[in-house]
Design a protein around this nucleic acid. Structure first.
Lengths: 350, 350
DNA sequence: ATGAAAGCGCTAACAG
DNA sequence: CTGTTAGCGCTTTCAT
């Protein structure tokens, strides 16, 4: 185990550089030495020290993932897993590992964590998960011009690459679907308003109502964290209104689950008394009861493309920034219409 | 950005070693130099190169997580997220980052990935997720005596630390609960039988029936992967039996969801026609319809303790192996009894 | 309290 | 095709 390149070299009777070349599959190595070195490596159970290699090559074959704090809470939303699944499916093929930035001594904030990760040279590029309206991380990435990509979009124009959905359009489409079903009192369960994604989805909801000439009612809009509990309490508020909504756009499936629970406890039947559309189409959406209509934003695809973009940025730093919009489509299930096919639902592509 | 310790040293008018000492908070540094160096670091936006540091200190402040392949599939089960949540909640406090081993060139198997991770010296210790009956990874860890901990238990006696539930007892308890409810035809939806956890849970089911003097019937036992689809098809098989079961122990919540879907499609009502107990108590279990009774094995706690153990092993390598059993308790919800309290359920601690 | 120097394990010119 | 040499940026004796 504790063997280094020198040990291998002397056992094989060659110089360290030759061993290095064999490891790197350098072409101009005689077949014979190659085999001798390989044998020595095997005998000593030699594994190259990636740290030493990193120090000289200045690459780590590792992609950093900055998880917004509070980390704990982030993991609670399946969004994360789906995203990570997409990311790893690509990194795996491309030979990159993934480093989660979680180290967090005394009061380290996201900024410090990011700078720590960048400065430490342990990653070749960084994927940022979700953006805030006033996001201090983006300027840091811009200044350092490290390969980086944001899942989401910057609130203000920026030089970094990003991969996102057209969240405004998606919310517009979801709301419009409910309008077409005959609803005109539609509640909106939104995420916290310092996230760009929340603002975009709310804007789409607004636009759809406006285009349908329906007056906005601030009572019908509540914001909460992307957690089940938030959906539950938000929904309780909405249903306590003098004139309750007959349909809900939940800007996250988890919020939708909370809403369904609240509705159930209040004795409303779904979809007979109340229609619900969720957002993200996490795997659980189809397992809800009734299966939940949800805007599929293809989270895994967001992750995949983000990984592809970052790898491209790493290998071709000269290429400028890229911005990618991932398609969305509404998956109709029984939380909106008892006529919908069970479980898998039917899909409306925009 | 591209500054190193020398740049800081010359700006501050000191030697590199002094800068190093300031960074490391070495006590014997005069207040004045300390401040001068700090100012220089700030001015140059200096961040220590963790790679270089790692090379000499032979520690990385990083914990490796080996995800069993196929990686993609692993992420599909919320078990992973819960586990990761527990792990990061501890590593975060302790100042460790987490490296996911995903790099997977042409046909790399788990063994190669593990050896790669260990040999590369990029991690101070390794957490292994889930163990197989014939697990080739455990011997590797033993030979290399790298700090390591297994979430699960080794199939054969081993020198590595592990954190696990008493899965046999847990399945025994789950099955016994159903027996007490008056069921005597109880089906078992198991995971793939090359996983230790699956074997243990099946053994617990066996033992409970034996203790109740009920003859085992191999028809009533089906194995599938820990995916919703597996639960669905497995359940379809069980319900097609001449004499169908009246209750199901699903050795994973996701299997339970699939079972509920199958039951629903076949027109059975839960719990009136059929009782279901799941395993793991993932957050989703309570959101199912009806909310699903589930054996809470405290996955996040598994992750937390695993992280604590690995950190202990790293800081005190002399300490021998540790084995920890995490408690389990059954959360009764309406998939077993319409009298159960909604959503959060009631808890039976063993 | 601070500096000089050696070295962690590897790669990459540059020779030959 | 292979060896020699000089670092990568940091820590750590050993001096002073």
């Amino acid at each position: 185990m504790g063997n280094n390149i020198k040990d291998v070299a002397s056992l094989a009777g060659v110089s360290p550089s030759t061993v290095s070349r064999v490891v790197a599959n350098h072409p101009r190595i005689s077949q014979e030495t190659r085999e001798r070195v390989r044998a020595a490596m095997k005998e000593l159970d030699y594994h190259p020290n990636a740290i030493a290699r990193s120090l000289v090559k200045k690459t780590s074959d590792t992609i950093g993932l900055l998880i917004p704090s509070p980390i704990d809470q982030f993991f609670l939303n399946p969004f994360f897993t789906e995203c990570l699944r997409g990311i790893t499916s690509v990194t795996q093929q491309a030979g990159y590992d993934v480093l989660l930035s979680t180290a967090n001594f005394t009061g380290f904030n996201d900024e410090t964590r990011l700078q720590h990760m960048l400065g430490s040279k342990r990653v070749d590029g960084v994927i940022l998960l979700s953006s805030k309206i006033h996001d201090p991380l983006i300027p840091i990435l811009e200044e350092n011009h490290v390969p980086s990509v944001l899942i989401g979009r910057p609130a203000v124009s920026s030089s970094i690459s990003w991969v996102n959905n057209d969240n405004q359009k998606a919310a517009y489409d979801a709301t419009t679907y409910l309008l077409q079903q005959g609803h005109h009192r539609i509640g909106f369960l939104g995420g916290s308003q310092d996230l760009v994604v929340s603002v975009d989805r709310l804007a789409g909801y607004h636009a759809a109502l406006r285009d349908a000439s329906i007056t906005l009612e601030s009572n019908l809009i509540v914001s909460a964290e992307f957690l089940e509990e938030g959906g539950y309490t938000g929904m309780m508020r909405l249903m306590a209104l003098a004139e309750r909504p007959t349909a809900i756009v939940a800007s996250d499936d988890v919020l939708g689950f909370g809403a369904m629970r609240a509705a159930g406890e209040l004795g409303y039947r779904i979809p007979e008394d109340l229609a619900i559309v969720g957002f993200n189409d996490i795997p659980l959406a189809k397992m809800a009861n009734p299966p939940m209509t949800s805007m599929n934003v293809h989270i895994d695809e967001l992750g995949k493309v983000a990984a592809e973009v970052i790898i491209e940025q790493i290998s071709q730093p000269s290429r400028g920034k890229r911005t990618v919009i991932i398609q969305h489509d509404l998956v109709i299930r029984r939380s909106c219409s008892s006529a919908a096919p069970p479980y898998f639902g039917s899909v409306i592509t925009s």
